[in-house]
Structure formats: C-alpha cells, structure tokens
C-alpha cells in the first residue's frame, strides 16, 4: 500500500499541499480531482517518491519512500506524467520496451518485444509500433506512453500505477478505453491513482473520488456519496445538477454555468 499520512510539502514560504491523507489500495482505482492549482500534481509527485514531504509521511507498505532508490521505486510503482517529449526518433515499440529497463534491466530481446506489442495492442496502438514517436499525434503519444507505463507496472506483483491526466489529449472513445484499461489493471490487483478533470469519467471508472482544493483534501468517498450540487459549487465555482445517469449505474453531473 502506497500512502501519504498527514503529509505537507512546502517550497520557501509557499505551502503547496498540507496535511494530506491519501492511501492507494490494491484492486482499487482512486480518482483525484480538483481545480487548477489544487495540488493534485504535488500529491502525485509525493506518492511517486519524486519529492519527500517536508512534514508528515509518504510510505510504501509502512516504510518511508524517501529511502528507496530510483530502480527500487520503479519496481513498485509506475508513473505517467502529463506530458513526455522524446528527443530522438525512437520507434513507438522501442519506447514501450524502455518501460522495463529501469526496474530490472528487462525490455530487451525478441520475447520482450512480442510481450510489449501485446500491451500496445490492448491500447489500440499496435499499428503504430514502428512509427517514429515524434511523428505521432499528441493523443497517440499519450497512449504509447500509457502502454509503456502499463508494461512496466505488470513486471512486478502488488504494484502501483499513478496516472497524471492520462486522458488530456485523447478523444472520447480513447478516454473510455484508457480508463477502462486502468480499471482492468486494478482488478488484477494493482493500486491505481488517476488525476482527472472530468467528474463524470471519475464517477464512472473510479472506486472512490478524492477532491483536492487549495492544497488540502476536501472530500473523499464514492461518487454517490460526495457528488452533490452545493459541494461541487464550493470546489469548482460551478453551478451543477446531479442526476442519476440515464443509461448507467451511478450519478451524472451536468454543469450549468459559473456559480
């Protein structure tokens, strides 16, 4: 289990996040939502071990993350940042294969290539395998990097997957595919955190939603429990109607305008 306990992070006089309690459990998808500047990315970086809390704890199975080196961390969690720019013309498949070098020196050999391509196939990017990554569209690149992250996370059991706005460049069908893939990964026993902006996607694909605002966590729970108009107005400054989804199980949020 990867978790923050009463974690705060300060840079100079600015407190980016304060007293955060956030736990990722095997088999569950947690959606992290909140307005811009809420501290979502800082929380993700704390969980990823990129930065250490200036107060409080960031722990993996009870041990502080800060003591682990990059390779050991890469065996226990995989991270998809919002944007990854590649500087040389690697094939998309070569990029996916890079997912396993850091953790254990894997990602080389014919069998690994076949395995990595199978993961690309799951995300619908197998036909891009031999294209120069830099010539792909933003959405295609994002899916290739998602495939790389997924391949990395599957190398080890009991793993954690941290996705920072994985749907930001994707069309609607691929947004659904990507989150469906993340949920399926959770069902295999992985703990998943996904930063999202779309409350309806969060309601539909996450087991629980965590709402961040102003560097604090202001709500945590299932979509049914926490999504209601007054709270949404407080968090996002938007008037909203919450209705049962007409076709699916669970609530649906319709935004009406600024509150």
């Amino acid at each position: 289990m990867l978790q923050l306990r009463q974690a705060s992070y300060r840079v100079g006089a600015a407190t980016l996040v304060e007293n955060i309690d956030l736990a990722l459990r095997p088999g569950a998808v947690v959606a992290l939502v909140g307005p811009n500047g809420a501290g979502k990315s800082t929380m993700l970086r704390l969980l990823a071990g990129e930065i250490a809390p200036t107060r409080g704890h960031a722990e993996l199975d009870g041990a502080p993350i800060a003591t682990m080196d990059a390779a050991a961390l890469a065996r226990r969690r995989a991270v998809l940042p919002q944007h990854t720019a590649t500087s040389f013309g690697f094939d998309a498949l070569a990029i996916v294969l890079m997912g396993r070098h850091g953790p254990d020196g894997g990602g080389a050999g014919a069998a690994a290539a076949a395995d990595a391509l199978a993961v690309m196939d799951e995300l619908g990017v197998a036909d891009l395998a031999h294209r120069d990554i830099r010539t792909l569209s933003g959405g295609e690149q994002q899916r290739v990097h998602l495939a790389r992250t997924l391949w990395q996370v599957r190398a080890f059991p009991d793993n954690h997957l941290l996705l920072d706005e994985p749907t930001s460049s994707l069309d609607i069908a691929h947004q659904f595919d990507a989150l469906e893939t993340a949920r399926a990964e959770a069902r295999r026993g992985t703990a998943v955190l996904v930063v999202l902006h779309d409350l309806n996607l969060a309601a539909r694909f996450a087991d629980s939603i965590t709402v961040a605002k102003g560097g604090r966590i202001v709500a945590q729970g299932t979509a049914e429990a926490i999504l209601e108009p007054r709270a949404i107005s407080d968090w996002f400054g938007m008037r909203a109607v919450v209705t049962p989804h007409p076709a699916e199980h669970g609530p649906m949020v319709v935004f009406c305008g600024r509150s």
Binding site: A48, E50, D69, A70, A71, L73, A74, R75, A78, V79, P81, T84, A85, T86, S87, F88, F90, A94, I95, M98, G99, H101, G102, P103, Q152
Partner: peptide
C-alpha cells in the same frame, strides 16, 4: 535511451 524521454521520466522509470 531512457534519458531521451527527459530527465524526470528517466528517473521515474528507474534510472539513477
């Protein structure tokens, strides 16, 4: 090779 995805991504992927 991993560095070509940027220093941050290389570190996140397990490179010291």
């Amino acid at each position: 090779d991993l560095f070509s995805m940027g220093e941050r991504q290389a570190w996140l992927s397990g490179i010291d």
